[in-house]
């Protein structure tokens, strides 16, 4: 799992931080720092965070390695 946050859109209210405080952290009033590569055990909490975001700034995707592995399996 990899995540991306559109920090232009993010408004720094911190709902995501409630959902998974070890992946999303607010520093100061509205600076969001996030871990783009959390372990798989975070998946449910990250999905919850993405749903909670009022401006839908959080995207969940895959890593390059995950995609490459799948494409080699299909070859």
């Amino acid at each position: 799992m990899r995540i991306s946050v559109d920090l232009n859109r993010c408004q720094g209210y911190g709902q995501c931080c409630f959902a998974d405080p070890s992946v999303f952290k607010l520093r100061g009033e509205e600076v969001l720092e996030f871990d783009p590569a959390p372990g798989d055990e975070h998946r449910l909490k990250v999905i919850r965070a993405a749903k909670a975001c009022p401006v839908q700034a959080i995207y969940i995707g895959e890593s390059y390695e995950e995609q490459e592995e799948r494409s080699h399996r299909h070859e």
């Binding site: 990899r2 720092e33 590569a37 995207y59 969940i60 995707g61 890593s63």
Partner: peptide, 26 residues
Amino acid sequence: PPLSKHVLTGHLPIEHTPLAMLEDVR
């Protein structure tokens, strides 16, 4: 963007900077 920010503070390990792939790009 993290390269001049929380990678340098040590908050984010460099191996965690790869971009999420949001579609199966094949």
